[in-house]
Amino acid sequence: MAELTEELSRVKAEEPAVPSTDVRVHPNPEPAKEGTPTVIVDDLHIIYRVYGAASDTEKGNAVNALMRLVKRQGRPQMKEVHAVRGVSFVARHGDAIGIIGRNGSGKSTMLRAIAGLLPPHSGAVYTNGQPSLLGVNAALMRELTGERNIVLGCYAMGMNPAQVKEKYDDIVDFSGIGEFVQFPMSTYSSGMGARLRFAIASARSHDVLLIDEALATGDREFRRKSQDRIKKMRDEAGTVFLVAHNLDVIEETCNRVIWLHKGKIKMDGDPQTVLAAYNKV
């Protein structure tokens, strides 16, 4: 099967490339039927490289850099973390899949691989359209005002100026931060920051939506608002993946649950069965 996969991937590589990041304007040409596969994960392995923390402590000085290079020869302080170890499953149109597991079980790593942001070590992820991770935090800058960050975040998610203009007021309204939008984000309370980030990230609609514990932000009022928003996005999206530690949310919104343990699928099935087994451990 591995050979077949390789064969196929080679065939795929020779095909004229299709603009894969370009799905934001036009959804799939023919609306996918209920039950059609939208995401196929085939024996996925992901290995992270982690470098020794020492490299951050001494910076800038050229002599230091040379010394370290000499000392390190033949003994690189690099560790490999095998985060996902051979996961396979098929997600279908209309699925809302919850992913549960302990910290460090590979949940977020797997989501990033599905989103096409992390290259697999071996195996493959096949998708229909471009899955998007719900989250824009990394693109924002704390020193800048909320206004600038809204524009920056929208562009980072691939919007054009007209779309940014159209969404701007909606984002400010939804976040409910009011005139604070003119202050730098570094002056925000953590709740305000989280609200603005969620408002920006959820301003776009997606084909395949990946949500990584985005629910537990802000006060109760905002949590209710954001859950409504996520429900709406879920209805618009064909397939949803949801990573959360809050099992109630998963039970409420998902029709299938995958339990990851140490990078492998421990259980995959309907929420009642899997959650019952998970709670027993």
Partner: peptide, 15 residues
């Protein structure tokens, strides 16, 4: 699974 993906016209997520 690779064949299934091909049958439904799914593409590699990272290409």
């Amino acid at each position: 699974l690779a064949k299934l993906a091909a049958r439904y016209g799914l593409r590699r997520a990272i290409a």
